[in-house]
Design a protein around this nucleic acid. Structure first.
Lengths: 160, 160
DNA sequence: CTGATTGCAAATCATTTGCAGTCAA
DNA sequence: TTGACTGCAAATGATTTGCAATCAG
């Protein structure tokens, strides 16, 4: 989805194409996989437009959410984050996230392996799935290595 | 998991077994699949203990979260909700939720169909999944029926 | 022009925290 | 007895809102 497409969506919705709106969109688009918070978007926006207000960021992400241009994500750290909607994936479904409980790093996954789960829900509950959100919590390879080292150290400590 | 088990967990953690803590636990346990908010737990607690404070609810759910007796869930409505940890399911993994975008009702699912996804993440990223959270958004059978009716009405309206 | 949008500051509202009194062990 | 726990009220911090000025169409 490019700027022009979004401009079209804005107009179709009877909304105006403003510098602030396009700037927020571009900031989110140019930081893929970074899951920016409103405050982070605000700080980046201020670099080129120091007069912009934080309220504008909040109002703009709401507009972009309504247009399904972006999606909301949270990783239980008290912040709402925003990312481009993965509309490319025919299904319209969002991608998944793997969150490391060790270092907090977030990995984005593209796999769409929930089809069988969604079919099951349709059959058993008559529930039609239109979107999903998957978060995997665990340890990334780096943190697993660190943990192993720590365990070795603890063992040596104990065996003293 | 019963009261006695939790009392044991509290003692093992060097924490005290208080009426407030057991009451909050019992309220959450006796409202399965209702995904209570702190405020809702507070209102239910006040029925029998009008002097209890909301801060105690927040502090208590934090303790129960630390002990992995309960889990946190959010459905993007601005509230944090709490539910008993589905520790029964050998894997220690949480169950899934299907959230109706029509009426907001939440269905709990027990299926554990993410194994292949988790294996893939392990192979490709070296990321070890220890827990996951799955939310399916869509329309429940009731709301689908309502939508169909509405569509028929719209069509009739258009064809006038 | 003119209503939508913005920036600012003040308001909201869920959650957290300090503190003095209370209670479990 | 005594440190952990609780209730209360005040503080915090992300997000929202009212309003006058500004801007897109």
């Amino acid at each position: 989805m490019n700027d022009e497409t979004v401009k079209g969506l804005l107009r179709k919705a009877g909304l105006k194409v403003t510098n602030q709106r396009m700037m927020v969109l571009d900031i989110i688009a140019s930081h893929p996989a970074e899951h920016l918070t409103a405050e982070e978007i605000y700080d980046l926006a201020k670099v080129n437009s120091p007069e912009i207000g934080l309220a504008t960021i909040y109002r703009t992400v709401q507009v972009l959410l309504d247009l399904h241009v972006i999606d909301k994500v949270t990783f239980d750290d008290g912040f709402t984050r925003y990312e481009l909607n993965g509309e490319e994936s025919a299904s319209g479904h969002r991608h998944h996230h793997a969150i490391c409980t060790g270092c907090g790093k977030v990995y984005s996954l593209e796999s769409d392996l929930l089809d069988s789960l969604e079919e099951e829900v349709m059959e058993k509950l008559g529930f039609l799935v239109t979107n999903h959100e998957v978060k995997l919590y665990g340890l990334c390879s780096e943190c697993r290595k660190k943990n192993e080292k720590k365990e070795v150290m603890n063992r040596e400590e104990r065996e003293k």
